[in-house]
Structures are given as C-alpha cells and as structure tokens.
Simulated assay, not measured.
Amino acid sequence: MIWVFVYGTLLPGESNHHVVKPYLVQSQPGRVRGRLYDIGAYPALVLDEQADWVEGEWHCIREEGLRDLDELEGYTGEAHNREYERVWIQDGEADRSGWVYVYGDSRGYPPIPEGSWRHWRKQKESLPK
C-alpha cells in the first residue's frame, strides 16, 4: 500500500476521483504547508514550509494505482516535459507521509486563497458569468 496526498481533482466528489477510486483502500484528512495555484480546471501545489496550510486528504492506495496517477499527472520519471513532480512529503500535523504531485513554482498562475481547492472551486462556480 502507498499513501498519496491529494488536494484537488482527485478528492471525492471532484472530476478525477474516478481515477483513484478503484485503488482506494482508505482515506483520512490531512494538510501540508504550501500554496495552491489556480491552473484553470485544476490546482497546483507549491510546497513551502513558511506558507499556510493546504487542505487535502491522504489516500492509501494499492501500488498499481500509482501508475494511473502518474499518467493523469503527466509524471514519467524523466526530468523533462512533465507538468508535475512527484515528491515524498510529511503531513504537517498527523503522523503520515507519502507521495504528492507538486509544481516547483507558481509559473505565474494566480494563488488560491485559504488553501482549499474545493472552497475555491465553489466560489468560482458562484461568480456571475
């Protein structure tokens, strides 16, 4: 089993949860230090020990699920042409560690206040179009 911290579209009720769901053994709330950025249809996390908390969940998945998550996140293990990096991280409060997909920097995208993709997405959806 492998633990993965998720903070965006892989969360239950979000658009890509179906990718992780077949491999999901258990989940629990979690949070890490960093900043979220609005990429459009999904967020990106930039780790930063001096930043506020980013809310998410720890998903314990069967090992074969990591391959599908890597594919979704565009992570090939090669150092070029990938959007996300997969790194090992420790939860800020709980005794939990595992993988998380992150950006190295903001790449100029706007920050998501309050460190919650779900909250931010709901706010965006309620804005007049």
Rank of each mutant, 00 (worst) to 15 (best):
G65H: 01
I89L: 11
L10T: 04
A94M: 11
E71Q: 14
E14Q: 14
L66G: 13
V54H: 01
V102R: 01
W88E: 13
S27V: 06
D38F: 02
D105W: 10
N81Q: 11
Y42E: 12
W99E: 12
V46T: 01
A41D: 11
R67D: 08
G98M: 06
I89A: 08
L47F: 11
W58K: 02
S106Y: 09
A51G: 04
N16P: 10
W117S: 07
A51F: 07
E73G: 06
V100D: 05
S126I: 03
R62L: 05
V102Q: 03
E71F: 10
S106C: 06
D91V: 01
E125F: 11
V4I: 15
D70A: 03
I2M: 09
R35W: 12
L66E: 11
L69Q: 01
I89D: 05
M1R: 11
D68P: 00
V6H: 03
G74N: 01
V32C: 04
L66I: 14
V20Y: 01
Y42D: 10
G65N: 00
R107P: 02
E57R: 13
G98D: 07
L11E: 04
V4F: 03
E85R: 15
E14R: 02
G92L: 05
Q26K: 14
E78L: 13
F5K: 05
A94H: 12
V19I: 15
V20E: 02
L36W: 02
G115F: 10
G108A: 05
L45Y: 04
Y109L: 13
W88T: 10
W120G: 00
V20P: 02
G34K: 00
D95L: 12
V6L: 09
R31T: 06
V4W: 01
D68Y: 00
Q50K: 14
D70F: 00
V54W: 01
G108M: 05
S15A: 14
D95P: 06
G40W: 07
A79I: 08
Y103N: 09
L72P: 02
Q26A: 13
E125R: 12
K122R: 15
R121N: 13
L45K: 05
I89S: 04
P110C: 10
E14N: 03
A94Q: 10
G77T: 05
G56L: 11
K122V: 11
W99I: 10
H17M: 06
V46M: 01
V87W: 02
R35T: 12
H80M: 08
T76H: 03
R82H: 13
Y42T: 07
G77I: 04
W58A: 04
V6S: 03
Y103D: 03
R33D: 02
K129G: 12
W120C: 00
C60E: 15
I2W: 09
L45W: 06
Y103T: 04
R107L: 14
R107N: 13
I89N: 07
C60G: 09
G77D: 01
W58C: 06
R35G: 03
S15C: 10
R33F: 08
R67L: 08
H119K: 15
L36V: 03
D95C: 12
L11R: 07
K122P: 06
A79N: 13
E73A: 06
A44R: 04
L66Q: 14
E71D: 15
W120S: 00
A44T: 05
P12Q: 06
